[in-house]
Protein backbone atom coordinates (compact mmCIF):
# COMPACT_ATOMS: atom_id res chain seq x y z
CA UNK A 1 0.00 0.00 0.00
CA UNK A 2 2.91 2.30 0.67
CA UNK A 3 4.32 1.69 -2.78
CA UNK A 4 2.83 4.25 -5.17
CA UNK A 5 2.18 2.60 -8.54
CA UNK A 6 0.90 3.73 -11.89
CA UNK A 7 -2.66 2.87 -10.91
CA UNK A 8 -2.61 5.39 -8.10
CA UNK A 9 -1.73 8.14 -10.50
CA UNK A 10 -4.32 7.02 -13.00
CA UNK A 11 -7.04 6.96 -10.40
CA UNK A 12 -6.02 10.42 -9.25
CA UNK A 13 -6.06 11.58 -12.85
CA UNK A 14 -9.55 10.27 -13.46
CA UNK A 15 -10.82 11.80 -10.25
CA UNK A 16 -9.48 15.16 -11.37
CA UNK A 17 -10.98 14.60 -14.80
CA UNK A 18 -14.35 13.86 -13.25
CA UNK A 19 -14.15 17.05 -11.19
CA UNK A 20 -13.45 18.97 -14.39
CA UNK A 21 -16.34 17.25 -16.12
CA UNK A 22 -18.72 18.18 -13.33
CA UNK A 23 -17.51 21.75 -13.61
CA UNK A 24 -18.07 21.81 -17.35
CA UNK A 25 -21.57 20.51 -16.93
CA UNK A 26 -22.88 22.53 -14.04
CA UNK A 27 -21.24 25.91 -14.53
CA UNK A 28 -23.13 28.66 -16.30
CA UNK A 29 -20.41 31.26 -16.02
CA UNK A 30 -18.27 31.13 -19.12
CA UNK A 31 -15.13 32.09 -17.23
CA UNK A 32 -15.67 29.20 -14.86
CA UNK A 33 -16.20 26.93 -17.79
CA UNK A 34 -12.78 27.83 -19.06
CA UNK A 35 -11.27 27.03 -15.70
CA UNK A 36 -12.99 23.66 -15.65
CA UNK A 37 -11.51 22.85 -19.00
CA UNK A 38 -8.09 23.72 -17.64
CA UNK A 39 -8.69 21.14 -14.93
CA UNK A 40 -9.52 18.54 -17.56
CA UNK A 41 -6.30 19.24 -19.41
CA UNK A 42 -4.25 19.04 -16.21
CA UNK A 43 -5.81 15.72 -15.27
CA UNK A 44 -4.71 14.28 -18.57
CA UNK A 45 -1.25 15.76 -18.15
CA UNK A 46 -0.80 13.92 -14.88
CA UNK A 47 -1.78 10.67 -16.55
CA UNK A 48 0.65 11.24 -19.41
CA UNK A 49 3.54 12.02 -17.14
CA UNK A 50 2.80 9.03 -14.91
CA UNK A 51 2.55 6.54 -17.74
CA UNK A 52 5.72 7.91 -19.29
CA UNK A 53 7.54 7.61 -15.99
CA UNK A 54 6.51 4.04 -15.27
CA UNK A 55 7.49 2.92 -18.73
CA UNK A 56 10.74 4.83 -18.72
CA UNK A 57 9.61 6.79 -21.72
CA UNK A 58 9.83 10.49 -22.46
CA UNK A 59 6.95 10.53 -24.94
CA UNK A 60 4.45 11.06 -22.13
CA UNK A 61 6.25 14.17 -20.99
CA UNK A 62 6.45 15.44 -24.54
CA UNK A 63 2.72 15.10 -24.94
CA UNK A 64 2.08 16.84 -21.65
CA UNK A 65 4.37 19.61 -22.82
CA UNK A 66 2.42 20.14 -26.01
CA UNK A 67 -0.84 19.97 -24.12
CA UNK A 68 0.36 22.87 -21.95
CA UNK A 69 1.24 24.86 -25.07
CA UNK A 70 -2.22 24.22 -26.49
CA UNK A 71 -3.85 25.14 -23.20
CA UNK A 72 -2.00 28.45 -23.16
CA UNK A 73 -3.12 29.27 -26.72
CA UNK A 74 -6.64 28.25 -25.92
CA UNK A 75 -6.79 30.56 -22.93
CA UNK A 76 -5.41 33.48 -24.93
CA UNK A 77 -7.88 33.11 -27.77
CA UNK A 78 -10.77 32.03 -25.59
CA UNK A 79 -10.46 34.96 -23.24
CA UNK A 80 -10.21 37.32 -26.21
CA UNK A 81 -13.47 35.96 -27.57
CA UNK A 82 -15.03 36.13 -24.16
CA UNK A 83 -14.14 39.79 -23.82
CA UNK A 84 -15.70 40.58 -27.21
CA UNK A 85 -18.81 38.69 -26.23
CA UNK A 86 -19.03 40.57 -22.95
CA UNK A 87 -18.59 43.91 -24.68
CA UNK A 88 -21.39 43.17 -27.09
CA UNK A 89 -23.93 41.49 -24.87
CA UNK A 90 -22.95 42.64 -21.39
CA UNK A 91 -23.24 39.12 -20.03
CA UNK A 92 -21.17 35.97 -19.81
CA UNK A 93 -24.03 33.67 -18.96
CA UNK A 94 -23.87 30.47 -21.01
CA UNK A 95 -27.66 30.26 -21.34
CA UNK A 96 -27.84 33.52 -23.24
CA UNK A 97 -25.83 32.08 -26.08
CA UNK A 98 -28.59 30.61 -28.16
CA UNK A 99 -27.77 31.83 -31.66
CA UNK A 100 -26.97 28.25 -32.63
CA UNK A 101 -30.56 27.12 -32.09
CA UNK A 102 -31.39 24.48 -34.66
Amino acid sequence: MMEIGLTHYLVLSTVLFAIGLVGVMRRKNLLMLFMASEILLNAVNVAFAAIGHYYGDLTGQMFAFFVIAIAASEVAVGLGLLIIWYKRTDTIDLDTMTSMRG
Binding site: M25, L94, D95, T98, G102
Partner: peptide, 16 residues
Amino acid sequence: HTMQNGNLSSMLRWMV
Protein backbone atom coordinates in the same frame (compact mmCIF):
# COMPACT_ATOMS: atom_id res chain seq x y z
CA HIS B 1 -35.33 18.04 -31.99
CA THR B 2 -35.44 19.64 -28.56
CA MET B 3 -31.80 18.58 -28.28
CA GLN B 4 -30.99 21.30 -30.77
CA ASN B 5 -32.28 24.08 -28.56
CA GLY B 6 -29.17 26.15 -29.01
CA ASN B 7 -28.36 26.12 -25.30
CA LEU B 8 -24.64 25.62 -24.93
CA SER B 9 -24.77 23.86 -21.58
CA SER B 10 -27.18 21.26 -22.86
CA MET B 11 -24.95 20.85 -25.88
CA LEU B 12 -22.02 20.27 -23.56
CA ARG B 13 -24.01 17.66 -21.74
CA TRP B 14 -24.76 15.85 -24.96
CA MET B 15 -21.16 16.07 -25.90
CA VAL B 16 -20.22 14.29 -22.69
